Computed example of a mutant assay.
Amino acid sequence: MAGLGVFGADEEVGRDLAAVDWASTPLGPPGTWPQSLHTAVSILLSSRFAMWMAWGPELTFFCNAAYRRDTLGRKYPWALGRPASEVWAEVWTDAGPRIESVLTTGSATWDEALLLFLERSGYPEETYHTFSYSPLRDDDGVPVGMLCVVSEDTKRVIGERRLETLRDLGADPGVVRGEQEILASAGRQLERNRRDLPFTLTYLFEDGTARLAATTGIAREHPAAPAVLPPHDPDRVWPSTALGKGEAVLVDLDRAPFTGLPAGDWAEPPEQALVVPLLQQGSAPNGFLVAALNRYRPLDEGYRSFVELVAGHVAAEISSARSYQAQQRRAEELAELDRAKTAFFSNVSHEFRTPSR
């Protein structure tokens, strides 16, 4: 390596750019590059905002440190010096026409929170980006490349979506209702977020047996939604007996009866589900929630917390309903006892007032 040269504006990425065999690319060695390309690369590398650029007949790829950190993932440093159509092959149907428009018209594009399935982490990942493609011109003023300035919105978009679900779950200020009413109300909210929750199953325990009480996004007739889960059945679909410690269990959906699962709002079905106990204070769980997971997002701390909060809300509502029903039964029993006492003392009083013959 003869030195960083044009790449010296960014020590971190500059060394890797300098190590690229530029002579084997359509751009040739950096010493032969036009001044316009040197200037564009210098601007790119000196910026602390995430940027990437493409230049020349193969739209050769460059990026800066911020873009490497925020977006490129495992594709670094492999991507440097390669055609942009190879670097972002999985989203080229989105990126390619936009770049072609920039080169043809010389006008910039703009997209806000665009959904792109990037394969930067070893799997297709649901991501959102706000970005602009702007033309880069050669020394003669002809558009020969483009500069992308980008801000990733993935955390914000997904966070807002999950927060909306949690907010709506707790938005009904009505009086305490029965279990089925509560489950139906929760189901209507969960149905609106089939990206994070492609389908759900709610089981409630009754004499040690788990019985299916509610579903969203999946038919009750599906083999993955049995109506009853006996406690000692070794072939039970969901690990209901593994929830004794109150901890969630992750289930891989790569075997029967998990074929033909619904995909929610996605093209492909979920690969995993999280089974979360429906905890009640000071007692064993009332049941458990099966939450199918979005295959395009990792089960990180935020995702797990979201599912557990959903289950916590359902558990709290069921406990409230059961407590209310118990109070109602107790009130009815007391009222019946009071009526019996009143009738008894009325009869006794009547006997005292009525002279015997």
Results as ranks from 00 to 15, higher is better:
Y128C: 08
S132G: 04
D94V: 08
A89V: 04
T127K: 12
S101Y: 08
A113P: 06
E112F: 12
F117S: 04
A113G: 08
W110A: 15
R98M: 15
G96P: 01
T105G: 12
E86L: 05
D94W: 05
H129L: 09
E126F: 11
S121N: 11
E90H: 09
E100I: 02
Y76P: 02
V87C: 06
V87K: 06
E86D: 11
E112I: 12
V87G: 05
V87I: 04
L114C: 13
Y133F: 13
E90A: 09
E125N: 06
P97D: 01
T104F: 10
T105I: 13
V91H: 10
G106F: 09
G106R: 11
I99L: 15
L80G: 03
S101G: 10
T105Y: 12
S85V: 07
E119I: 03
P135M: 14
Y76C: 02
G96Y: 01
V91A: 10
P97H: 03
G122V: 00
E112Q: 14
D94I: 03
S132E: 04
W88C: 14
A108I: 12
G122H: 00
A95C: 14
L103E: 00
S134A: 15
Y128G: 06
R120Q: 08
G81Y: 02
Y76M: 01
L103Y: 00
W92T: 02
P97W: 03
W110K: 15
E119P: 01
L115I: 01
A113Q: 14
T104R: 15
A89L: 06
G81I: 00
G106E: 10
T93E: 13
Y133K: 05
A89Q: 10
D94P: 00
T104D: 15
L116K: 12
A79V: 01
R82I: 02
G81A: 03
T130N: 08
V87Q: 07
E86S: 03
F131N: 08
E119S: 07
S107E: 15
G81C: 02
L103S: 00
W88T: 13
W88E: 15
L115C: 10
F131K: 09
Y133P: 03
E126K: 13
S121P: 04
T127W: 12
P135C: 11
S132N: 04
E112L: 13
E86Y: 02
T105R: 12
T104A: 15
P77T: 01
T127F: 13
S107R: 15
V87P: 07
G106I: 10
Y123T: 05
F117W: 05
L80Q: 00
T104N: 14
R82P: 07
R82H: 07
E125I: 00
P77Y: 02
V102I: 05
P83I: 08
H129S: 09
L115E: 12
F131T: 04
E125M: 09
I99W: 05
A79S: 09
R98G: 13
V102R: 07
Y133D: 10
E119W: 05
V91L: 09
F117E: 06
R82Y: 01
S121E: 14
A113Y: 10
E90Q: 11
I99R: 08
P124I: 00
Y76K: 04
L118K: 06
T109I: 10
A89I: 00
A84S: 09
Y76N: 01
R82D: 05
F117H: 07
D111N: 14
S132C: 03
R98V: 10
E86K: 06
